[in-house]
């Protein structure tokens, strides 16, 4: 295309503006978490750690952090196991009802969370397992398994299909070929799918809010504080949540990238 400089710079400027829009709320939330005013505005008040102290000394927050941790680690484990099994099935076998099979696996993220929340609430009540930490874990696994499946499936499609058959021909059973060829090859994808599903589960609030009963997760605590009034505690909790999620996302990304580099 012709080199139209003013247009090019206009587009770069526009891109910068869009990124500002995307990151402004995250940035301001971190800034406000250190700001002394109850209702933060410009000019900023003085630097303070009092919101962090309030949060640190709140036993409800600690309880919620424990619940959140349990939920996201369990969810990540279940979702990654399910995702791996499904990705492997899709990679290796073809069968008649496969489109339906894949639809069943991949559809949950397209259903609005609020609808899933209501459906899960009613269904768990019917089964008699509502209001427990387990209910959140089950619901989150349904929601995140498709992500795990997609990440691991992408990795499998980079694999030379003859590797597994070679292992069989050399006398390996299906199980040991899986354990010694497929799983090691997928390890980076398995680790990053574990981190990403944990991060999604750690931030999810609608379903947790509906099905959790008295077991509140961190996002549910945030939701309740926000519903009450303007309270900068939210920014402090939010910055903490952001830190956790970002760590998980960066680990996931780094694991995927370094492996790729090594192989090239």
């Amino acid at each position: 295309m012709s080199d139209n400089r003013p247009l090019r710079w206009f587009l770069y400027g526009y891109l910068a503006l869009v990124f500002t829009f995307v990151f402004a709320p995250i940035l301001f939330s971190v800034i406000f978490s250190f700001n002394s005013d109850r209702f933060p505005t410009i000019p900023l008040g003085s630097f303070t750690l009092k919101w962090y102290q309030t949060v640190w000394n709140d036993p409800d927050v600690w309880e919620a952090a424990r619940t959140s941790l349990t939920v996201s680690l369990s969810t990540a484990t279940i979702a990654t196991l399910l995702g791996f099994a499904t990705a492997y099935t899709d990679y290796r076998y073809s069968f008649r009802l496969k489109p339906i099979y894949l639809g069943l696996v991949l559809l949950p993220p397209t259903i609005p969370l609020i609808i899933m929340a209501l459906a899960m609430l009613a269904w768990f009540a019917k089964l008699g397992i509502s209001g427990q930490v387990m209910s959140i874990i089950i619901a989150h696994s349904v929601l995140t398994a498709p992500f795990a499946m997609a990440i691991i499936r992408l990795r499998l499609s980079q694999m030379d299909p003859s590797l597994e058959s070679a292992a069989w021909n050399l006398g390996a059973s299906q199980w040991s070929a899986l354990r010694r060829v497929i799983v090691p090859f997928c390890r980076p994808a398995i680790i990053s799918s574990f981190c990403l599903t944990a991060a999604v589960s750690f931030d999810e609030f609608a379903i947790s809010w509906f099905v959790a009963g008295l077991n509140k997760t961190i996002p549910v605590i945030i939701l309740e504080i926000v519903t009450g009034n303007i309270d900068p505690q939210v920014n402090a909790i939010g910055s903490f949540v952001f830190l956790v999620s970002m760590t998980l996302v960066i680990i996931a990304q780094v694991v995927l990238m370094t492996r790729r580099k090594k192989e090239v």
Partner: peptide, 11 residues
Amino acid sequence: FFTSYLVRIFS
């Protein structure tokens, strides 16, 4: 996607 939507809305 991996940051709290609620916190961003509050922001």
